[in-house]
Amino acid sequence: MNTKTLETVKTIKTLNSIAESGLKVFNENYILDDNSENPDAIVVRSFNMHSLEFGTKLKAIARAGAGVNNIPIEKCTEQGIVVFNTPGANANAVKEIVLTTLMASSRNLFAGVEWAKSLDGKGAEIPKLVEAGKKQFVGKEIKGKTLGVIGLGAIGALVANDALDLDMDVIGFDPFISVDTAWNLSRNVQRAATLEELFANSDYITVHVPFTDSTGGMFNKETFSIMKPGVHILNFSRGELVNEQDIAAALESGRVGKYITDFPNENVLKMKNVVPIPHLGASTNESEENCAIMAARQLKEFLETGNIKNSVNFPNTSLPYTGKRRVAVFHKNVPNMVGQITSAISSFNLNIADMVNRSRGEYAYTMIDIENKINGDVTPKLEEKIKQINDIVITRII
């Protein structure tokens, strides 16, 4: 257990190359120091942080992207370190590559291009060879076909809506769809009651869910047997969602027509009818800038006001910041915790102007604005008094 306070100048460390447009979010109250051993916050992309030891000042980590498998979430939570991600910032980039590969693979474009390049050196015979050989690449139009979209978050919803505009029928499955996403999703997207229903009725399937214990290997021998023969599967989420041994067999038999994946490895590259994409899903200049800006803004907001948005381990919590001194406490989600914190504040004859409390599983986050001006000598005493309460993880006075 430790207690930290917000300092006047805060140090930001980056563990990957971060777009300059994101770093510009930090003003003169911040120092960008990639060599700092004890920063206030870290901005990261794909750097593996699992073996890192965190300094005592570290308050937050922002992942400029959606996936956080490279960050030790449980360790951060236990140490009171907020972990942010940037859902939706790269959604358009991923949507575009999903639709691009959906059409290109359906028309056998990738194989056709490689074959055409192999004709180099044939001279005047090339036009005749092209006309004679193009029959082997006859493909299918996607118009009128059914696309199954698993996961209707920021990316899945965009894919579903745009696929409708391409005259496809769209089936969606997401038991955890948010209200905001539901508002943005076309009413013409059909709702599948189960994954099995989606599998059985889709000509193409694209998946947009995180890798968890429940989603790992969700594409396997049993689920392939439910699908239409020749189905195309697009995976721009995580390679671990697909059982490699089972999909190799399904591709060999023709049960799965094509597997388009953003996560090639040695096993995948040996499979029949695989379209390997070199992890380009979110690799656009615009996406990298959007993610960097969003990550930086979320860090800055938290460091300056305590407000939390898009955290993967703390509850999202917001309280309008009016400039009053604010007590921000991360603690175990146990009875009478808020009462103990307010009692500690009242013991210094301080009045509460506003407050908010939000919980997430075993933990909770409380912010309390103080009506009175707090003298400098009171701040460390108040911090220490709150620190003495059982099950307090971290306290900041802003």
Rank of each mutant, 00 (worst) to 15 (best):
F47Q: 15
K128Y: 07
N273F: 04
R358V: 09
D165V: 13
V256Q: 09
G376Y: 02
S106F: 10
L280I: 15
R107E: 09
E371I: 00
V130Y: 05
L185C: 01
A292T: 03
A160R: 02
A93K: 05
N372C: 02
L119S: 02
I142K: 03
A282T: 14
P229R: 01
I341V: 15
T101D: 10
S105L: 10
L185Y: 01
M227E: 05
E28A: 11
P210N: 08
V275Y: 12
R396W: 11
K57G: 06
G123T: 04
L251Y: 00
D180R: 11
I171N: 10
T379N: 04
F54Y: 02
I177N: 08
L99C: 05
V159H: 01
M367S: 05
V113W: 10
I31E: 14
K381F: 05
A124S: 14
P127T: 04
L6A: 15
D34R: 11
E383M: 14
P229S: 08
F173P: 01
N108Q: 09
A124W: 06
G339S: 05
G139M: 02
L350M: 08
L198S: 09
D169Y: 11
E384A: 13
G230C: 00
E240R: 06
N267L: 14
M294F: 06
M227H: 08
I345H: 08
N188Q: 04
L119Y: 02
L32K: 07
I18V: 05
S202L: 06
A296T: 00
F137D: 09
I352F: 02
F199S: 13
G80I: 00
A66R: 06
I150N: 08
S343L: 12
T261L: 01
S17V: 15
P264R: 01
L152P: 02
L234H: 05
A282N: 10
L382G: 04
R358M: 06
D162K: 11
D246C: 02
I150M: 12
S118W: 03
K332Q: 11
K24T: 12
S359M: 09
